[in-house]
Design a protein around this nucleic acid. Structure first.
Length: 597
RNA sequence: GGCCCGGUGGUCAAGCGGUCAAGACACGGCCCUUUCAAGGCUGUAACACGGGUUCGAUUCCCGUCCGGGUCACCA
């Protein structure tokens, strides 16, 4: 029989205010009439005046749902947080593929929440079972953790942490269904039995007629099914989805304040979007609204690809009678491809995956620092003024986030990386290198691990002081950069300078070897090189050579170049005296001798 | 195609009606210097286009063009 219901506003105890009026008092196109039992029942004036007992329909559709929306409102009360605290959430789908875009958003979410004394939630959006990948949650958590993104609440590897869970959407099925049931009761949602084929047909017809695609208005075939028709479909055991009975009219525009973009103006939604799929699991649209409300999220950061579905979301919030959170639509990261900008794609662009940077050995702090400069236009300026300050000292705001497509700039990342390594101690660089090498280049780990003090010394070249060297960018590049120090990796990468004749070279090296004394300090050592140069017709000072090039074969720089190639295999290297001190007399002599052969 | 978002130097970007249109990266030059790196100085380089509104538009409005996003029982 007809079930009695007397809905009290869900908002009564949630502290959320609803700006659009009170839908509970007068649901759209709904009537509350007296039955002969003198109970109140909800009925919907479906179309042209026939009435449907939507309460009965809801019961038919969701017999297993016994909880009420009020139960959940009570279960997830408003949070008691300091004024201005922001609650944000990251909602990755469990493919395990975390990319730069996710990280970009995650940093913003994290800053917003933690800077304001709020809460940062990890919610796994697993409503599409086709996407699920084994162990994905663990991967997500660990890759974010690597880049310093930590959650206060939400999914953890084997469960949940927090009082607003569960934090995996599939586990919340009953919650969504409860609210869907409410909507059906109120006539604001209805079952749709259309098959995929029928939907395709509609789509094709719309294409032919050049009308907008979608399930709406006259195209919404099952929107106005009578109870009898619904019963028939049900009796046949046909699967169905629950659709929103949209009340919007695209001719009307509404405005909404976006945290990043300011005032947005969009047409009202009129699509009867799917709320619950045939398997009873919600679509993103419905899950997002329910979860963000129930988890008391205050700020929704998401990519701009969600902008076009914002009207659905706004209508669902409105229909539920809830105050929507602040939407913040970020820009997508782009890449320059054959002259045109395009969205970074996970299929085509390996550099989109976080693992790309990790395997190359970019320091997480560098990636974070770079992303932060892209994220907030005044961050870079702040960083220059406060080179060593903690990020907590920076006031991160959504309105400083850009809204035009940002190109990922590898040059800039490199620049930032150099600063990061320049600011570290040799020990820190070493530890980082070892960690990296162990998983991504075991041979390197062996070499680096064999002589820690040797590696430490060479990583210390030019470190500290006013003007530290800035030539370390990422681990694999660093390893390449220091390889020549290890005999097993040493090779003659560059040629000897061509302006020094082979016989001169030989004489130079022979005499250098004879006169080499590791006890010499930098100055004494270089004096010897000058002297050696002069003895063989090379100017002891480059300036002398410049003044009078005809008088010399070259200058001390050319002689140094010979030594440099012999010792390092390269034309470019850090300070020669310093690298010899580190290599040790034995290795120095051996290399010179080898070059002589 | 409909709808939405965006368009300042090569790249990232300040800028909210009056600025010589910041800064960073990249690039060039000079200085320093035995190479490299760093550092210092310095230079090239931009408001997509066309109409308005205004005494005055990069800033406001309209149109055009270009780029991107989105139109699923995916997120």
């Amino acid at each position: 029989m007809v079930k009695r219901l007397r809905h009290r506003p869900l908002t009564a105890d949630s502290g959320v205010r609803f700006p659009y009026g009170s839908p509970y008092a007068k649901p759209i196109r709904m009537e509350c009439c007296r039955s002969f039992h003198s109970n109140f029942i909800w009925s919907a004036n479906i179309k042209g005046g026939h009435w449907m007992d939507t309460t009965k329909l809801a019961e038919m559709l969701f017999p297993q749902i016994t909880k009420t929306p009020e139960d959940f409102e009570a279960l997830y009360p408003a949070r008691s947080l300091p004024a201005g605290a922001k609650v944000t959430r990251l909602g990755p789908s469990p493919t395990g593929f975390i990319h730069l875009g996710n990280l970009y958003g995650a940093f913003a979410d994290e800053r917003l929440a933690h800077q304001s004394g709020g809460v940062f939630i990890l919610r796994i959006e697993d409503t599409d079972n086709k996407r699920e990948v084994e162990g994905a949650v663990e991967t997500i958590i660990s890759s974010l953790d690597y880049f310093g993104v930590h959650f206060d609440e939400g999914a953890v590897v084997d469960g949940d942490k927090g009082n607003y869970g569960p934090y995996r959407q599939r586990q919340r099925a009953g919650i969504y269904q409860t609210f869907a049931k409410l909507l059906v009761q109120r006539g604001q949602a209805y079952p749709c039995f259309c098959t995929e084929a029928e939907l395709n047909e509609i789509h094709e017809e719309q294409a032919a007629l050049k009308e907008n695609f979608g399930y709406y208005g006259k195209w919404a075939k099952h929107r106005d099914l009578s109870s009898q028709q619904i019963q028939e479909h049900l009796d046949l055991g046909e699967p169905f989805v629950i659709r929103l009975r949209s009340q919007g009219d695209p001719a009307n525009y509404f405005t909404i304040e976006d945290g990043i973009r300011g005032t947005l103006s969009m047409p009202e939604n009129n699509q009867d979007v799917v709320l619950l799929k045939a398997d009873g699991i919600p679509t993103y649209h419905f899950a997002h609204v329910i979860d963000d409300h129930l988890m008391r999220v205050t700020h929704i950061l998401r990519g701009e690809e969600w902008l076009s579905t914002l009207p659905f979301h706004v209508e669902i919030f409105k229909t539920m009678g809830w105050q929507p959170p602040v939407f913040c639509h970020t820009t997508v990261l782009m890449k320059l491809d054959e002259g045109t900008k395009r969205k970074l794609s996970k299929r085509k662009d390996p550099e989109l995956g976080l693992d790309y940077y990790r395997s190359l050995g970019y320091h997480p702090a560098a990636v974070r620092e770079y992303l932060l400069t892209v994220l907030n236009s005044n961050y870079e300026e702040w960083r220059m003024a406060n080179p060593t300050a903690s990020i907590d000292g920076f006031d991160f705001t959504t309105d400083k986030m850009g809204s035009s497509g940002a190109l990922f700039d590898l040059d800039k990342l490199s620049d930032v990386s150099k600063d990061i390594f320049a600011g570290m101690t040799a020990e820190e660089v070493y530890a980082f290198m070892m960690d990296w090498a162990k998983t991504y280049q075991p041979e390197a780990a062996e070499v680096l691990g064999a002589e820690p003090s040797y590696v430490l010394k060479l990583l210390n070249i030019g470190r500290g002081g006013e003007n530290p060297r800035k030539d370390l960018i990422f681990a694999s590049q660093i390893f390449e950069f220091i390889q020549f120090f290890f005999d097993s990796y040493f090779e003659m990468t560059d040629e000897f300078p061509e302006n020094v004749a082979p016989e001169d070279r030989k004489a130079l090296l022979t005499e250098y070897l004879a006169g080499y004394d590791p006890q010499d300090d930098a100055q004494a050592w270089f004096e010897k090189v000058r002297q050696l140069s002069a003895e063989h017709g090379f100017a002891a000072k480059p300036k002398e050579y410049k003044k009078n090039p005809e008088a010399y074969k070259g200058h001390v720089g050319d002689v140094s170049a010979v030594l440099r190639v012999a010792l390092s295999g390269r034309r470019n290297s850090p300070d020669l005296w310093e690298i010899q001190q580190i290599m040790g007399a034995q290795r120095v002599k051996a290399r010179i001798q080898a070059a002589l052969r």
